[in-house]
Design a protein around this nucleic acid. Structure first.
Lengths: 355, 355
DNA sequence: CTGAAAGCGCTTACAG
DNA sequence: CTGAAAGCGCTTACAG
């Protein structure tokens, strides 16, 4: 109707110009083989000449084939509901693309159990049709094993939350951990003066191999070295994540250094420290931590947590799923690394923040 | 193939159950009329019973109709390239949806010329097929006139950048201006102490009627009143936006108040103030302003601008166009107000920031 | 007021 | 190696 006859050229026109049937054009278009070199060349030439753009709608409609995507992320645990946020991102993407006959199957592993990761991915690998995989590679070796199989089988996969470089993922969506810590240091410089002491708190069952935490602290400290700022930075590692242990640890370190000015908690466990300050009193200590999750937001609003750093976990997962879909649908190549912005949230701007 | 025969029910099945032809089903589906009450009711019942979800792909494919959207935003000017950012958002959305046969026609007006706004919208209204409109209602009365016509003609429209409440827009994407200023105040409290003086600078050709600026300052000041903080806040309005005038204004105010600790510029003109500080020296004054645009980023990296507040102008426009598309395609209702997050950018986190 | 047919631009068997 | 036909789930004239 309002078409101006400009409806872009399709297989029909290509077939006409190449003097073949549309079936043969389709074979060339999808590299299905069974076409003589000569006709193939001719058809390719016409396709180029016409700058043919396939009609995605028609393609999806005609091929009754559902696209099957799989996601593998940690389950929400009592310790933290952080992983509910990426899950929401997956669901958001799913709702958008299910109209185009895409199915997303969601698998979850236990953050504290390597085996569960392996079990889940083996379950996935047993599926007969796997068009793409999104995973949070919490256990590096196991994730490598999984994605090696994907590579062999030509299944595209994307990482979220943390990256394994050189693993030929389609793309990574998540923080640049080092830079994230580095960035916090810059903010901290605005909040403290040179003779203020800073406490870095790493709260994790396995600090020694917690890549996230280590890289963030590295970046944080690097800033002070680079800028030659001789501010005192104390690190406290806590490998027990229950409140009592955190309380004991804080009691100890604050007794030893009573004049701490700012506490930087390198992950979402900042709410535990906030809980401590809520009962003990916070004085003029500033508290900075990670992740825009319910518990933390409560303390943010009470002004017990001063700043939360957040790297859009929902968007990471959302973009991850959409990237797989786009890759499969349009054979589009995607920019390899997509580092999330490092958002700063305080009581004053939390209202309209979105993960 | 991998279909499990679960391909959701379509018009055919509805027609079968209602004992009519698919043509009649289609008439009911689109309220085209010409169907007897009785059959209509019957068909509607079946549709509900089956929880029929139309196949959008097929719908778009079958109806040769192109969707025509129109956008009306300010042109990029010498004064500021701010409006290039929303334009990029429009283009981004356009690229995503043009696959679905959507055309976006972009119109631009001159920020300093009401008449150009009127001319452009009249041009738009002459188009024969208008499926939706996105506009930045910089001139309120004129925007009301325009959108009144849209309402009459049943054309959906969305606002970006600033809102006109009660104008029955489909949706608004942009900042909550008051809250934006309020939010900056909270940050400023972390950066200054109670006896530090603050300078608010409004740089705009028509400060008195610049809604953006006025609301932000209002929010900013409100914070201090609410919290009963007796910090000195000086306002300086500059109605000349060239550098020399800004320089003169700053010379004057800084002579009068030599002990200013923080300057808050209420819009993207903060680069002019930065330029001043670059030549005069900044001392220990902090500089806070708006918008993540090239000129400002340069000064951010030189640490002459300390913080930029940004409300994702690209995303505003992107979401605006997508909202129109979704509304038209799926007749989906959209949440009425979508206030953008109030992002805080400093030298340390600007690297991965996206407008 | 209603139905039957053609067609949107592709893909998928099937036949040769 | 290639073609002709049927069909994906809709919409659009056209005929009655």
């Amino acid at each position: 109707m309002s078409n101006n006859g400009k409806r872009s050229v399709g297989v029909k026109e290509i077939a006409r110009r190449a003097n073949v049937s549309i079936g043969t054009v389709d074979r060339v278009l999808h590299n299905r083989g069974g076409v003589s070199e000569k006709t193939k060349e001719k058809i390719i030439a016409v396709i180029k000449e016409l700058n043919y753009q396939p009609n995605i709608l028609a393609r999806r409609l005609a091929s009754g084939r559902t696209i099957h995507l799989f996601t593998l992320i940690p389950a929400v645990s009592d310790e933290t509901d952080y992983w509910d946020v990426p899950l929401q991102g997956i669901i958001q993407a799913e709702n958008e693309i299910k109209l185009y006959d895409v199915k997303v199957s969601k698998f979850f592993f236990d953050m504290n159990d390597r085996k569960s990761f392996v079990e889940r991915y083996q379950q996935i690998l047993q599926e007969e049709q796997i068009d793409g995989v999104l995973l949070a590679p919490a256990f590096i070796e196991e994730a490598i094993a999984f994605t090696n199989v994907c590579q062999q089988r030509n299944i595209p996969f994307v990482f979220i939350n943390s990256d394994i470089p050189n693993q030929k993922s389609l793309c990574y969506f998540g923080p640049d951990l080092f830079y994230s810590g580095y960035s916090v240091a810059h903010l901290v410089r605005y909040l403290t003066s040179e003779n203020d002491k800073i406490l870095v708190m790493n709260i994790s069952k396995d600090v020694a191999s917690d890549h996230h935490i280590l890289r963030k602290e590295e970046g944080f400290r690097k800033y002070f070295i680079e800028k030659q700022i001789s501010q005192t930075i104390i690190t406290k590692n806590l490998t027990q994540t229950d409140y009592d242990s955190v309380k004991a640890g804080l009691d100890e370190v604050l007794q030893q250094y009573p004049d701490i000015r700012l506490v930087f908690v390198t992950n979402s466990r900042v709410s535990l420290v906030a809980q401590y300050f809520e009962s003990k009193g916070k004085g003029n200590i500033l508290l900075v931590g990670y992740d825009f999750i319910t518990r933390n937001i409560e303390y943010l609003n009470k002004e017990i947590i001063d700043f939360l750093i957040c790297e859009k976990p929902q968007e990471q997962a959302y973009r991850g799923v959409k990237a797989l879909y786009h890759y499969i649908m349009f054979e589009e190549n995607i920019e390899k690394d997509f580092y999330m912005p490092i958002d700063i949230i305080h009581k004053g701007n939390q209202k309209f923040y979105r993960n």
